[in-house]
Write a protein that binds this DNA or RNA. Structure first.
Length: 282
DNA sequence: TTGTGTTTTATTGCCTCC
DNA sequence: GGAGGCAATAAAACACAA
């Protein structure tokens, strides 16, 4: 038996469904052909037995589902470029021109819109991904720069400390013996580690005080922007001005930062890429 | 040739609008 | 309530590697 199928209406409307190029769809409220036309082409099956009746197929093989000709597709594509929605008049005209059923034209446009939307989603995804990758790259280089600056600050601080200690030793040798007693008081502030001196801020002196609470190195930024170092901000803050107080370079800060920028990027992208004024990103 | 993945054509059910 | 749009899906047609 030559292939070719008939479909029994699964919903039970009692309508046989069309199959074959140019054949009409007869479908409840949306039929595009009248009963007279239908009866010329194919009667309804009254039972599943009739559906599988070999003789019926031998006599009245329905057309196979056919693809549209290249010419038909070309014209439909051109029409779609002009306007991707199909008003009834244009549908009828196109159908006449192409020798198709109006329903087929409508279906073609429907499917074409779906394909266009899929492609558009792919394009949008690619653009967003590129944007995200670029932001990540920027972020990593900023992070690197920040690390370098931290190392530089540490190195300079150590040099400064060494210089001050050398100067203190020199002045001790030259000093008046009467004042030497006072000089024996250890310069406590120099005993404090560099990290402590630069650590965050309580705004308190870094001098160790046995009675008071001990300073603890929080591990936070070397430039907290606190009273200790007014005007000093991290490289990331300088670069983008978007980091919040919690953004201490940890993963959390990173994700917040990226999310904010990413969303902003998305919004901008969305405004630019609104396609043809009919499909709305949801 | 055949199995398999992709594309195209068509149907169905639900939703919105008028 | 009818018309038309869309998402999901089926199935034929097609492409292509093995």
């Amino acid at each position: 038996m030559e292939s070719g199928r008939l479909f029994f209406d699964p919903v039970g409307h009692g309508n046989m469904l069309y199959l074959g190029s140019g054949d009409p769809v007869f479908r409840g409220s949306r039929s595009v052909m009248n009963m007279e036309e239908t009866s010329k082409r194919r009667p309804f099956f009254s039972s599943p037995d009739e559906l599988f009746d070999e003789d019926y197929y031998d006599e009245q093989l329905p057309e196979k589902k056919r693809r549209l000709s290249p010419e038909q597709v070309h014209l439909l594509e051109k029409s779609f470029e002009v306007e991707n929605k199909l008003e009834p008049e244009r549908k009828t005209q196109l159908a006449k021109k192409l020798g198709m059923q109006p329903r087929q034209v409508a279906v073609w446009f429907q499917n074409r819109r779906a394909r266009w939307k899929t492609k558009q989603l792919e394009r949008d995804y690619d653009k967003l991904k590129a944007s995200y990758d670029s932001l990540m790259s920027d972020y990593d280089s900023i992070l690197n720069g920040n690390e370098k600056l931290k190392a530089e600050v540490l190195s300079l601080s150590e040099k400064l400390q060494a210089k001050e200690m050398a100067r203190a030793a020199t002045s001790e040798q030259k000093s008046d013996p009467l004042l030497a007693v006072a000089d024996h008081v250890p310069p406590l502030q120099f005993d404090v580690k560099v990290e402590d001196r630069l650590s965050t801020g309580s705004g308190r002196s870094a001098v160790v005080d046995d009675d008071g609470p001990q300073l603890v190195d929080s591990g936070d930024s070397y430039f907290p922007g606190s009273d200790d170092y007014p005007g000093c901000v991290s490289a990331v803050e300088v670069e983008h001005g978007v980091m919040s107080e919690e953004d201490d370079g940890s993963d959390d800060g990173r994700s917040t930062y990226l999310t904010d920028v990413f969303v902003a990027e998305q919004q901008q992208h969305h405004e630019e890429e609104q396609p043809m004024g009919w499909w709305v990103w949801s």
